[in-house]
């Protein structure tokens, strides 16, 4: 199974590298959104306070994640899915997708954090902890969204469906992240936010287990 996951991961990375337009498209999408946010505040001569900073950052990451992960199953053609179905276990497929998407989203979120701080000013007093939150949070995003992308790819109008299916189920993760990153922004002692970090990790575990158990039923068609 480990071998299968490794092979599938390698395939995804190579595929992404060959079709650079997708990766570049997502990068441009994130940066233009950040720039639009910056300009919208700039035109009012308003400074972004820490609360708006926090909410804006995570909303941008949420939308970027949805567009990034949406393509993970939708891009694969029917015939190729049948080929995988005969070749590997469904669990390996969902695990490889989760790992791949997590890596991609962490990379994107950290990059976006850099650009965001550059144009809107860095409000985070504890950047190390903030990056840790990005890590824990984007894994939750990637897990939930990977399963949702699998569901949406089976339906007929999958673009909109992906968004409406994902929004409500991702809110618990999103709210925990925003609360946690507020602590990181205010520079509160890390031990204070341990409880919430554990809750976030627990939610990650729950959605991960669910995705692992439910995906085989999705796959069989």
């Amino acid at each position: 199974m480990l071998k299968e996951i490794k092979a599938l991961l390698w395939k995804d990375i190579v595929l992404e590298w060959r079709h650079k337009y997708a990766l570049n498209g997502i990068l441009l999408y994130t940066f233009s959104t950040i720039f639009i946010c910056y300009l919208s505040f700039e035109v009012l001569h308003a400074r972004v306070d820490q609360f708006s900073w926090n909410a804006l950052y995570w909303i941008i990451i949420l939308f970027t994640s949805i567009s990034t992960v949406a393509k993970s199953f939708i891009q694969e053609k029917e015939g190729r899915q049948l080929y995988y179905f005969n070749l590997v276990r469904p669990q390996s497929i969902i695990l490889s997708k989760i790992i791949y998407n997590s890596g991609l989203l962490v990379l994107l979120a950290v990059l976006a954090f850099g650009v965001f701080s550059l144009v809107l000013g860095n409000r985070v007093q504890d950047p190390g902890f903030f990056v840790l939150i990005i890590l824990a949070g984007t894994v939750g995003f990637a897990t939930t969204l990977s399963l949702m992308s699998g569901i949406a790819s089976k339906a007929d109008n999958n673009g909109m469906l992906m968004a409406i299916l994902s929004f409500p189920v991702i809110i618990p993760v999103l709210l925990m992240i925003i609360k946690l990153s507020r602590n990181a922004i205010d520079g509160i002692a890390r031990s204070e936010s341990l409880d919430e970090l554990l809750t976030l990790l627990a939610i990650d575990m729950i959605v991960g287990t669910l995705a692992y158990l439910l995906f085989p039923y999705l796959w069989r068609s």
Binding site: T144, A155, N157, L161
Partner: peptide, 28 residues
């Protein structure tokens, strides 16, 4: 989600998956 499928079997299976996932996402 249910109304976006043509094929009844596919509809049943995939919406069941979403229902289970949504229920456990609702508990937290």
């Amino acid at each position: 989600l249910r109304s976006s499928f043509e094929d009844p079997q596919q509809r049943s299976r995939i919406s069941a998956v979403y229902n289970i996932f949504a229920y456990f996402a609702m508990i937290p």
